[in-house]
Amino acid sequence: MSTAPEKAQNQAVSAWLAASLNRPADAYTQWADRHLAVLALGSRFCAFRLADELVHAVDAATEFSTASTILRALAGPVIHDPRGRRYYALVPPAPPGPDAGPHATYLGLGHYIGVPRIGDDQHTDTWSSYWAVPMPAPGTLCDPNRVLRLIRAGTAALDEEADA
């Protein structure tokens, strides 16, 4: 059960995310109908799309670590799409940086992603997207440098795996 401050925080985060659309009410309708809203990237936030195998390669190469711990180290919100086998690390808007490699893609202006309803932070049997790491406050996003380090570590681990 949520407390009043948690509900207020969730409402503030939802409002901040919904404002990525020209008509924020559309996000609320989509969350109510489908638990997932298609939001625009580029103005409020962007995302790195990370293949599951990239994150799990870092997990396997890191002693005493889990994918959840690795994702929390990004210091911001991460969405997991189990059907598409992808993670989305939400980052501040910026021009695309260097090529992220074969297992990650930077998504910015002109892209859209499915964003789960705030509070949907548990994997279910429905294969629906959920918050692997919830957004703790409006505007709190992953550190892009940490995301790039994760991408480099995962790519190196996958390359080493392929060479073995």
Rank of each mutant, 00 (worst) to 15 (best):
H35Q: 11
A157G: 05
A60M: 13
P98Q: 12
V55N: 04
L90E: 01
I113S: 00
R149C: 14
F48K: 02
D81W: 07
G119C: 07
P5F: 08
A8S: 13
D26W: 00
A164Q: 15
V78R: 01
G84E: 09
T126H: 13
D143W: 01
P134M: 02
L158E: 01
S129L: 06
L74K: 04
R117L: 11
V58Q: 10
T29Y: 03
I70N: 10
P95T: 09
E63P: 11
E6S: 09
P116T: 04
Q122E: 15
S68Y: 15
R49H: 12
F45A: 03
E63S: 15
H103Y: 09
R34C: 09
A164M: 14
D159I: 09
I113D: 05
Y112K: 15
A94H: 08
A32V: 01
H80M: 09
G154V: 10
L41D: 00
W31V: 01
A104N: 06
D143T: 03
T62V: 07
G119H: 06
L17Y: 04
E63N: 13
E53V: 13
C142A: 03
S128M: 10
A18I: 07
G84C: 07
A104L: 04
S2M: 14
S68H: 15
G139M: 06
E161M: 13
A32R: 02
R23P: 03
Q9P: 09
A25T: 11
G139T: 02
A12M: 07
R34E: 10
I79R: 00
R85H: 06
V38C: 10
P134V: 02
H80F: 06
R44I: 06
R49N: 11
V13L: 07
R146D: 08
A73I: 09
A153P: 08
S65W: 12
S14A: 11
H56P: 09
W131R: 01
Y28D: 06
Q30V: 05
R44V: 04
A25H: 03
Q11D: 09
H123P: 15
H111F: 12
E160L: 14
R149E: 12
L36M: 10
L150F: 12
W16N: 03
A137K: 07
Q11P: 02
T126M: 11
Y88E: 01
P92Y: 00
D33Q: 05
T155D: 05
T126Q: 11
H103R: 07
Q9L: 12
S20Y: 00
R23T: 12
D125G: 15
Y130W: 10
A19I: 00
D59K: 14
H123R: 15
G139I: 06
E161Q: 13
D125Y: 14
I79N: 01
R83C: 08
Q30P: 03
A15H: 05
P92V: 01
V55A: 04
M135P: 02
T126I: 13
A37F: 04
Y130R: 05
A27F: 03
A37D: 00
T3W: 04
A153N: 14
E63T: 14
P144N: 13
D59Y: 13
W31Y: 00
A156G: 12
P24D: 00
L17F: 00
D143Y: 01
T62E: 09
A15L: 08
L141H: 00
E63Q: 14
A104D: 06
R72A: 12
Y112T: 15
G110C: 04
A94R: 07
G97A: 08
L54A: 08
P102I: 11
